[in-house]
Design a binder for these strands. Structure first.
Lengths: 346, 346
DNA sequence: TTGAAAGCGCTAACAG
DNA sequence: CTGTTAGCGCTTTCAA
């Protein structure tokens, strides 16, 4: 927090008042209190003076007297993930229409970074925050609550605490279930699942959904067929190799980041889908659009989720004492050509 | 700018001072002036008191007394474009290490939105800004200069004004030239160019590079072979159709957004590369990684550009009166399998 | 080594 | 209808 070498001071209401031959109070009213009645002539005179000398209100000064800051924040654990990137674009746009600028932060799945970021945001006294928590550690949200900063938890939930936070997410159990269903319905029975080995509940829920679907079809759950590894293309390649060796006829690609590596491995080693292996992927990264044969994907309602989280945040800024709301969205299957009907097999 | 319904006031240095049995001045020194000597015992007592009652400095209040805001901004014209998204991730991370949070804004190629955004950022008295301008309209930068907010123009330059702004970008002429060279060197002579029909200079420069390369190989420039359209997958498809009808043996795909549409059209209509058409694409979207056969791509040094722009901004915050600097980066060709050597043709 | 006090730019009673 | 004035939370000079 060093003092910047900034030169001369900027234009303030004082300067405008002098220029317009009125008081600073009047200038303040012109720029931040539409209710107050002022002689139109005076109002215009002030506006003209302000325009002439290039006055722009200092939102920071304004906020310490209790006005809103005009800043919202989004803190995500994986900013590079297209799922989040696309939601961010929408949230930023909704926020702007409501008069806010949006600070975007990336915790990179590191709770400690997340803490530092949140502390910095509290310093800024932001008006609200959308948080996709790293490792689902609840501790950091305490900071926001203590400073009465309204927030919405996005996509990743905390176990057993839906009544403590605003929440918007999609049903991970259902996405795992739905993905597996595509394969079961096509007649597959030996179905593997490949995913991320993270401790966050989302991951586990997808596996639960996968297993629930298997059970529903009377297929014995084989833990050997649940592959997990870190979230990288290389890890995906490793799992791709394991899938090829596992002898299954179908697989659920549980996360698009690792799916990419697996598919590259398949391409490199001549495994074709759906002929050699039927595939369903959870997620719709941009690259899925150019890959042939088209993958059957489980699509999350990104647009709806972005809108819901932004609106939930805005309304809980308006009514800070409103009890927390939870919204769980469902996925849909986007059919491609990566699932072979089992009857077509020998 | 309505008054938020926020409840009780937050904890301030006053509260800390009372708790620690000292003055607000001392508390202030503890939290924002490491130089000032204080009895270690006192310093610790203050810190303990602050921790106990959960004090976090109000950066907004701090800034009105001349301290820095702690906020930088990035304003891009196409936030969804992966080229920008990836640079943003890096810039955000560098900024955070320097103690800043970063506000991300999206002008969506609309100069009027850009003006509104910049005005809002000026209101926030941000410490600096990285701007990728919509339509390269210089007018909006005036706002930043008037308020002495250091800024760096990213990627899109203004004609004839490299001495007015800090600038970091890549050499569009060279990328167009380099792309075309790949095809010429392989023996192609009828080479089309497909790109974006925007008035921004970048676009024109790529075409200039393309034409310069042709001339260097003694190939007559045929304006019929320069296709342009809006920046969308559909427009890309249209250009894909035109390319197929044009009878060329090779094409430069000048922007990855439209390239995607063109390639989808090729896939749908059975045109194979490089057998039927040799291709070089400018840009490296994520989807290029999974597309077979691999495209030969012209790669922009995103990492270097992100680092350069962030560092240029930080240093021009330190030294606001330093004369503007321009840094132009060069692209490299990333060879794929999408260029057929002409000698292999009948 | 510390604290009192005068502001920073702005808002909002309150008085005129 | 408009202006005076007392702060908001913080920094920093200056005096003790």
């Amino acid at each position: 927090m060093t003092t910047p070498a900034k030169a001369r001071k900027s234009v303030t209401i004082k300067d405008v008042a002098r220029k317009a031959g009125t008081s600073i109070a009047t200038v303040s009213y012109v720029f931040s209190n539409a209710e107050r009645y002022l002689r139109p002539e005076l109002r215009e005179r002030v506006q003209a003076a302000a325009a002439e000398i290039g006055y722009v209100k200092n939102a920071a000064a304004s906020s310490i007297k209790g006005k809103r800051r005009g800043i919202l924040a989004i803190v995500v654990a994986q900013f590079g993930n297209s799922f989040f990137t696309r939601m961010c674009v929408e949230i930023v746009s909704i926020a702007r229409q409501a008069g806010y600028v949006v600070t975007l932060c990336n915790s990179d799945e590191d709770p400690e970074q997340e803490r530092i970021i949140l502390e910095r945001l509290v310093e800024q006294r932001i008006d609200g925050c959308i948080l996709c928590p790293a490792l689902s550690l609840e501790a950091n949200t305490e900071l926001l609550r203590r400073h009465r900063i309204p927030y919405v938890i996005l996509e990743r939930s905390f176990p057993d605490s839906s009544m403590t936070h605003n929440f918007v997410g999609h049903d991970n159990f259902q996405s795992g279930y739905l993905a597996t269903l595509q394969l079961l319905a096509a007649g597959h029975r030996r179905i593997a699942f490949s995913g991320w080995d993270s401790p966050i509940p989302n991951v586990r829920e997808r596996v639960d959904g996968y297993q629930a679907a298997l059970r529903e079809y009377g297929v014995a759950v084989d833990n050997e067929l649940v592959l997990t590894d870190e979230l990288s293309a290389d890890a995906g390649r490793r799992m791709g190799a394991q899938l090829m060796a596992s002898g299954v006829s179908a697989a659920v690609l549980g996360h698009h980041e690792t799916a990419k590596g697996a598919l590259l491995h398949f391409q490199d080693h001549g495994l074709r889908w759906p002929e050699d292996l039927s595939l369903v992927m959870i997620g719709t990264p941009e690259w899925a659009g150019v890959l042939l044969p088209q993958l059957t994907c489980i699509e999350r309602p990104e647009h709806e989720m972005a809108v819901a989280s932004a609106e939930l945040l805005l309304s809980s800024i308006e009514a800070p004492d409103h009890p927390p709301l939870s919204q769980l969205f469902h996925c849909t299957a986007k059919e491609g050509k990566s699932v072979l009907a089992r009857s077509q097999l020998p």
